[in-house]
Design a protein around this nucleic acid. Structure first.
Lengths: 212, 212
DNA sequence: AGTCCATGTCTACAGTGTAGACACGCCCGG
DNA sequence: CCGGGCGTGTCTACACTGTAGACATGGACT
């Protein structure tokens, strides 16, 4: 089961005190390990080597901690290294591909990311920069936001769908054999289409049909 | 707060015994009222006028009950009345618009729907019918599945995003005034773009760029 | 030296999902 | 007619959850 027994867990920064970022990173690693539903503040405390209540000095409640996890995922995107100077199609394409890859690297955390708005300064800053790049290309600001929302919603929906399928397949393991009665056109198509290889199809379709 | 004090709750079918469908419908109504996080089996039992443990005669656990809620949402789509005989663009367009409308009518239940695969017979049947309509139009089965996945992922991602924004706005109520420092290009664009009116943009873009 | 405050700890409480034994009504073979 | 099974709802109990509130402690600053 644990393919990677020594799962990478962020090292404590010489263990002086806790910090929001460190707690969020450990919480993310714990969610990666055991999933959101098995996650608990007590287990997080144990993982931190600290009383569970200590976390509440840094986050008002579990919901805020999950906001922190979403933030940690966002910083993993490293948006500063995007092509902010080229055509916006390149920037947007790369950004959403990175978003997809990052989310799929944390399948257990995708629902956490997908179910809350990201309002951290870094995220807002990236959003404004994107809007700016589109308006610089002659696109109305409102249209720019619409376009970016479409791309983002497709990407997040895609990652969420894949994560759900992948995690659900683990416990069900129901794949009808080609000779069984349940093997219909849908199952046949699913056999042909590798799961997840349609992301580029949708992304390029969206980019192609939207204004340049 | 409760704009609609007498919230429509499905009538008991002359109250002989419970049933999976009835329990799922009441659970959905309860989630609509109080949200998924405040939902509990005990409250569901109270709403049903029955011991909480009675539900476990019909669903093995809460997760299975939520599967039932997702099923209830799917049946609300009434897929039989889709234009199964016309061009598949019409069928797919109408289907995903209905899906969006239904999900937005249950903002508190969107996360439940989005975070589990739908494997009910009705859903599988609808899926195979859709695949069939696309292959009848000369599209390879694997490509048909890819196309449908793109559309579905965009739609679900969209509904999830809107639900999250709408529900989050209720508790935060943070909308920067135009004269404040936090009013940047993103906030300006958000003021211009009505939330949610970009769905047609993305859907038609996807349909236009995909094979006919 | 004394005060304050940030940080971590402890206890406690209300509420959760659900396992397992129990009670009651209906149906059906004798 | 009966008696027993069985489907359905009930009750109790347990391990576990998030988190409020009081407490300890150690270093920093006056």
């Amino acid at each position: 089961m644990t393919r990677d027994p020594k799962r990478t867990r962020p090292d404590a920064p010489t263990r002086t005190t806790l910090s929001r970022a460190y707690i969020a990173a450990v919480a993310l690693a714990l969610v990666d390990d055991i999933g959101r539903d098995r996650f608990s503040m007590r287990k997080l405390g144990a993982e931190l080597g600290v009383d569970p209540m200590a976390v509440y000095r840094y986050f008002p409640d579990q919901e805020a901690l999950f906001d922190g996890i979403a933030e940690a995922l966002f910083t993993e995107l490293d948006v500063d290294t995007l092509p902010w100077d080229g055509p916006w199609h390149d920037m947007a394409g790369q950004y959403h591909r990175r978003l997809r890859d990052t989310l799929l690297a944390h399948p257990h955390a995708v629902t956490i990311f997908a179910t809350r708005p990201l309002r951290s300064p870094a995220a807002i800053d990236a959003g404004t920069r994107m809007i700016g790049q589109l308006t610089a290309a002659g696109i109305d600001a409102a249209d720019a936001l619409r376009i970016l929302r479409c791309l983002r919603e497709f990407t997040v929906g895609h990652a969420l769908n894949l994560a759900v399928l992948q995690l659900g397949a683990r416990r069900r393991s129901r794949k009808p054999r080609p000779d069984s009665a349940g093997y219909n056109a849908l199952a046949y198509a699913a056999d042909q289409a590798e799961t997840g290889d349609h992301f580029d199809l949708g992304l390029t379709a969206l980019l192609a049909a939207l204004p340049h």
